[in-house]
Design a protein around this nucleic acid. Sequence first.
DNA 1: GTGGCTTCTTCCCGACGGGAAGTAGCTCTC
DNA 2: GAGAGCTACTTCCCGTCGGGAAGAAGCCAC
Lengths: 144, 144
Amino acid sequence: MTTMRAVQQQVHAKEDYDAFLAVCPSRQLLDRISNKWVVLILCALGGASPQTGASEGPRTMRYSELSRLLAGVSQKMLTQTLRSLERDGLLTRTVTPTVPVTVSYRLTDLGLSLHHLTREIRNWAQAHMGEVLAHRDDYDAVAS
Amino acid sequence: MTTMRAVQQQVHAKEDYDAFLAVCPSRQLLDRISNKWVVLILCALGGASPQTGASEGPRTMRYSELSRLLAGVSQKMLTQTLRSLERDGLLTRTVTPTVPVTVSYRLTDLGLSLHHLTREIRNWAQAHMGEVLAHRDDYDAVAS
DNA sequence: GTGGCTTCTTCCCGACGGGAAGTAGCTCTC
DNA sequence: GAGAGCTACTTCCCGTCGGGAAGAAGCCAC
């Protein structure tokens, strides 16, 4: 089974994926990870500290922890996004039958590799916020 | 005016932006750039070749070129996304009064700095497509 | 057995995005 | 000079996606 998957993976890797093509699977994958909740979840589970954005390695987080950290996410979207990330092999979902039940999420190696990119996206947003705000002021001033 | 903006920018840079907070401006910026059309437009204008994903420096592209390259984008979304990127100072929009009119778009330095990240996102999607597909097969097989 | 805790799931509805058609300005044809 | 044609939008309609709130499941404390 594992060998079959490895072979399948190699075959897939040999294909010429082009994310610009609407029909290409990599385009659909790109569409899915270019999503604000995906980026924020990966940032959170990667262990990035809120202020520095530095990564201290993957963290195991409970559903309620994520819900609290990602201000504004609805329960529906959080659950839905976590499930799709689990399906894609980016994170693992572990249910511990305590009372009440505990569900914890943790990045896989694959998820961690993507986390490095989303972390940089987040750092970019925080670092260039001032520039962007200044440009918006200019644009709006000219437009008015 | 320019000095005022520079000062404003410094002030903004000193604040502790935290993209996890829903009210933080950097969170809204992150929400905007975590968008499939934004990522694809930045990839296209950065000059990434469809197959290798390597960047050859910023390209100037016409509206129709972008429309053709980004398969599946609606005219409405393309225009809307380009406008918001222009407003944020990530690209410039140039109208040349030829007949018919020519409108060209080009990344600014700020846009180029973000392009480097989106290009890696795209490369990641294309590189790990096989792994993700394999994980999906596993997940769906277990679920059934 | 009622309330409470966590992790979802379901329902309703408003907002966002796709598709197609309409617009503007100019040029070329007939 | 009326109509077609070209690019780059803009507008309208409508389906789908996402937010908000309430319900469900499973178990324990009181």
